[in-house]
């Protein structure tokens, strides 16, 4: 390569920049919405069907909850995003607090989504529900031994538990629910009780499920759908699901949910997207990931139906977001990795 002049060099440099600077968003004729989505996999069919049925094109920028919210905030009014879709409520309620989401009035959404799973002001709605359950190895544990999350602090579980890391939103949200229900001291006591039993702390829920199935731990705490995934693949695994806190506060649930952004260009189309996912698209949206529907008139997938119904924590999930930071602090102070 022999470049004749520095100007030519600069030209070569500038060319790709110019080319890539333009035309990032492909043009389309009909209505279109842009979604900041932390939920990138498992619902592809639902999105495709939505476009088919409504003629509204959907485009995604995938990322993690916090990262997308930071970006939404940095972009402000200029953001191209119409919808912010997360897999955990904390960032969603924080986004609402930061005025990044706008209230949406939709009788359809209010009718389908239970009050505890949406923002009282309508800035965000839960679209699928995930329960934080106790899983156990059926060869080692009798389900009658399991009662509450806190009871895993009982000495009988010494060296028998697998937990998820404290960096995980799931762990943080569970502890936030303890704070919301029983106050920070009680929450800290639960965490300390767990740690006294020297649990293994693993980096992802799937590994917890597989470790329990393989006998590396007798019990663990995971989101229900990770167990469902494994059981759907191999129904003979010695895995059982126990819904904790049935006699007390109910099993902790979190949501995958969405809100319409302040900067949305096409609020009706964005609202339609949320409504459709909660109603016509509900099955497709939740089934791909073995989640519970927020729409109680929709049946969950078979694997879940077989587990039976359970009592949920009725706390408004928005409260979880409020206590998330405190939960992280409790985990840090207790030395939970």
């Amino acid at each position: 390569m022999r470049l004749r002049s520095p100007l030519l060099t600069l030209g070569l440099v500038a060319l790709p920049l110019l080319v890539s600077g333009c035309g990032i968003v492909g043009g389309s004729d009909g209505p279109a919405i842009q979604v900041f989505s932390a939920r990138s996999y498992g619902a592809e069919q639902a999105y495709a069907r939505f476009t088919e049925e409504t003629g509204i094109e959907v485009e995604f920028l995938n990322g993690s909850d916090a990262e997308l919210r930071e970006r939404l905030q940095a972009e402000g009014e200029d953001s191209e995003a119409d919808v912010y879709l997360t897999v955990d409520v904390a960032n969603l309620s924080l986004a609402a607090e930061q005025d990044l989401l706008q209230p949406v009035e939709s009788s359809e959404l209010e009718a389908t989504v239970p009050a505890s799973l949406r923002d009282p002001e309508g800035r965000w709605y839960g679209l699928s529900e995930r329960a934080r359950v106790i899983i156990y190895n059926t060869d080692e544990v009798d389900p009658s031994e399991l009662s509450t999350y806190a009871a895993l602090g009982d000495p009988q579980w010494q060296d028998r538990i697998c937990f998820r890391t404290s960096t995980s939103a799931y762990t943080q949200s569970l502890v936030a629910s303890f704070i919301a229900n029983d106050g920070p001291e009680a929450a800290a006591e639960v965490v300390e009780g767990w740690l006294a039993n020297d649990p293994q702390i693993l980096a992802n829920d799937t590994e917890i499920v597989r470790t329990v199935a393989a006998g590396g731990c007798d019990v663990g705490i995971t989101n229900h759908y990770y167990v469902a995934r494994e059981l759907a693949q191999d129904p003979d695994l010695p895995l059982g699901i126990a819904f904790p806190n049935q006699e007390t506060t109910g099993t902790h649930v979190n949501i995958s949910g969405a809100g319409v952004t302040r900067s949305a260009d096409d609020v009706p189309a964005a609202t339609r997207f949320l409504e459709w996912l909660a109603t016509d698209g509900q099955s497709l949206f939740v089934d791909g990931n073995f989640e519970y529907p927020v729409n109680r008139s929709v049946e969950p997938v078979d694997v879940l139906r077989e587990q039976g119904d359970f009592r949920r924590d009725e706390l408004n999930v928005g409260e979880l977001g409020r206590y998330n930071a405190d939960a992280v602090q409790i985990l840090t102070d207790a030395g939970y990795r």
Binding site: D65, A66, T167, A169, I201, A325, V328
Partner: peptide, 18 residues
């Protein structure tokens, strides 16, 4: 590998405690 380094701390403080 569950090693809590400063970068994990940054991650936790930023994403968990906003």
């Amino acid at each position: 590998f569950g090693v809590d380094t400063l970068s994990v701390g940054i991650y936790k403080v930023w994403r968990g405690q906003f």
